[in-house]
Design a protein around this nucleic acid. Structure first.
Lengths: 109, 109
DNA sequence: CATATGTGCAACTATTTGGTTTCGCAAATT
DNA sequence: AATTTGCGAAACCAAATAGTTGCACATATG
């Protein structure tokens, strides 16, 4: 099933899970211990995160270790890029204003 | 009312609205014309976007012009920063591997 | 082989969400 | 003054969502 990455990171619990498994791979039980939820609830979140490839899993015996697929996070960064251009451009414009003021002061001397 | 910015950008229609008003300020009617929705639906989206300060409004007569509050977008960038560190670090590690291979080839000559 | 442990999945529920319809109000237009 | 236009808000509805409970299954452990 395909899944929107922005919809996936909308839930605060899922963002907390992402932050947790970004540091090291974890089993659903271990993740659940870090929050006030059941393992089943975590499992559902992990499924959603897996569906949009934000998370990968590695089975070891009966345990399944989940970890962050960092490559997928770049997709958000890519979306943000268009807006970064805007705020950086705005910064440059401010920069120009400041240097203009500077020049004017110079001429006043 | 306070509102989670990640929840705000989760909806694809809202992201489209953001992209639209990032370029220039627009009235709800104009925005609605660009999509397959009613003005009322757009109005609801704008309300949500306003509630998390992603959007600002300026009244001109009976028209209200909505535009993007670019500063708020940086909040997403800030959240992404912790993960950017991870993928940049990973890239550096790859870089080291590549330069090691290069050195080895050099020594083979 | 019996039991304990780790897991995903389905059914169910309360809540949230995105959309439509209807309304009232203020500003423009006639 | 009457009508049109632009707007937000409330009421309503269908669909999605997050969580709980109960289950089945596979892998360890005794």
């Amino acid at each position: 099933m395909r899944r929107d990455i922005f919809q996936a990171i909308a839930d605060p619990t899922r963002r907390a899970i992402i932050a947790l498994i970004a540091l090291q791979a974890m089993t659903p039980n271990t993740i659940a211990e870090n929050f006030n939820t059941t393992r089943q609830a975590v499992s559902k979140h992990l499924r959603i995160l897996t569906e949009c490839q934000l998370v990968k899993q590695e089975q070891q015996g009966r345990e399944i270790y989940y970890s962050l697929e960092i490559e997928k996070m770049k997709e958000i960064d890519k979306w943000l890029e268009q807006y970064r251009k805007i705020w950086e451009n705005r910064f440059n414009q401010l920069d120009q204003v400041l240097s203009t003021i500077k020049k004017q002061k110079k001429n006043e001397k």
